[in-house]
Simulated scan of single mutants.
Amino acid sequence: MTRIYMNRWFSVAYHYIHMIRNNSDGEKFIFYGTHPDIQHMSLLAADHAETEPAVTGLEYVNFCVAFCARHEIDIFIPRLHMEEIARHIHLFDEIGTKVMVCRDIELLEAMMEKDRFYEMLGGKDLVAIPEYRVVNTAADFKKAYEQLSAQDMKVCFKPTKAEGGNGFRMIDNDLDSLGELFSYVTVSTTFQRAYDTLALTEQFEDLMVMELLEGPEYSIDCISTAKGELITAIPRRKSEGRLYLLEDVPELQAISERIAEALRIPYAFNIQVRYNQGIPKLLEINPRMSGGLYITCLSGVNMPYLAVRSIMGKPIEPPEPQLGITASFVEQALIMEARQFAK
């Protein structure tokens, strides 16, 4: 029976645990999870759950090592603090726990900082990079905005260190403030509003000011071997509302193959691109299972389980995903009081 530990994951870990558990090979797993919130949805599917301490850095790594040792964990699938965990990967090697993380520290850290990653990919001809500037003062923000606008580009900005859509804003100088107040919450703002806010401080954390990509957006969910050899890549296009399209896009398949061959990211990763004027440009690469992977699995490919087989060193036949699928999701009511959690 293989023991798997997942730390402070998104709520979608609930789906991934069930997918791994309900595999077609009949492999048996026991799941362990930790989170600061003991009632977090990510823990509901786990067999054993505990509360995480409010610590960071090496102290957090030591907590994870001790947890793995105490529960004789075979596979650790981290989300939080992947960089720190990778820096001290030898501590897990010493207790026999395999960690689903990229061991290339330079690459891993670059993927966490978008500007560094763009610089790393520059000149490699793997995927087009959007026009961007990195700023940390209001004056430089204004300069970057004016430079991109002068090229007839719409402009957006986002922290260089951010997960998902955190901190992302689109600049729209035609916003109707009153209409905005009575409408849905928006990620749009005017240049003046953003500038005035940023000018409140002498210097702020790095922002990436970049061209706004207005075409279709794709998440390409990928599974690879421990050596980073691509096993499968499935594009998922975000459509209107909650609709997603699982599509066969040779251009995106080629991008996935080039990135996998050049970077050798192991196990599970996600490439996000968005088109602008017919050209797919890189948004970011997440070196982990993506938040929407459970939708991609409607292609008939159990990607979380393939990632587990990969780290276990078991052979994997390249799957044949069913594409041309329109997919969505609905909420599901679950009873939280049905089990006792460790405190």
Rank of each mutant, 00 (worst) to 15 (best):
T2R: 14
Y5K: 01
M6P: 10
V12G: 10
H15T: 03
H18Q: 13
M19L: 12
G26M: 15
F29I: 07
I30F: 03
Y32L: 09
G33L: 10
I38F: 01
Q39P: 01
A46H: 04
A46G: 04
D47T: 04
T51K: 15
A54Q: 13
T56H: 12
G57T: 12
N62Y: 07
F67W: 02
F67K: 07
F67P: 05
C68H: 09
C68P: 04
R70Q: 11
E72N: 14
I75E: 06
I75W: 07
P78I: 08
R79C: 06
E83A: 11
I85L: 13
I89L: 15
F92D: 00
F92W: 15
D93T: 12
E94D: 14
E94Q: 15
G96D: 08
K98R: 12
C102D: 04
I105S: 03
L107P: 13
E109R: 06
A110P: 09
E113G: 02
K114Y: 04
Y118N: 00
M120C: 08
L121P: 02
L121Q: 02
G122P: 06
P130N: 08
V134F: 00
V134W: 03
V134R: 04
V134D: 06
A139Y: 13
K142G: 06
K142H: 15
K142L: 12
K143V: 11
K143L: 14
A144C: 12
D152M: 04
V155N: 07
C156E: 06
K158V: 01
T160C: 14
K161I: 11
E163G: 04
E163M: 14
G164P: 00
F168I: 09
M170V: 15
I171A: 01
D174C: 07
D176H: 10
L178T: 09
E180P: 00
S183I: 05
V187K: 10
A194N: 01
Y195S: 10
L198Y: 09
L200F: 04
T201N: 12
F204G: 06
D206F: 13
D206S: 13
L207E: 09
M208L: 15
V209I: 12
L213C: 03
L213S: 00
Y218A: 11
Y218L: 09
Y218Q: 03
S219A: 14
A226V: 09
A226F: 02
K227H: 13
L230I: 13
R236P: 00
K238M: 05
G241L: 03
G241V: 06
L243G: 06
E247M: 04
D248Q: 14
V249P: 05
L252P: 05
E257A: 11
I259E: 05
I259R: 07
A260P: 00
L263M: 12
I265N: 05
P266N: 03
P266T: 12
I271F: 04
Q272V: 11
R274S: 00
Y275V: 10
Q277V: 05
P280S: 08
L282M: 01
E284D: 07
R288E: 02
M289L: 15
L298Y: 08
G300Y: 13
N302A: 06
N302D: 09
P304R: 03
Y305C: 00
V308G: 00
R309I: 03
S310M: 12
I311D: 01
I316P: 00
I316M: 08
P318Y: 01
P319R: 05
I325L: 15
T326W: 14
A327I: 08
S328C: 11
V330H: 14
E331P: 11
Q332L: 12
M336S: 15
F341G: 06
A342K: 15
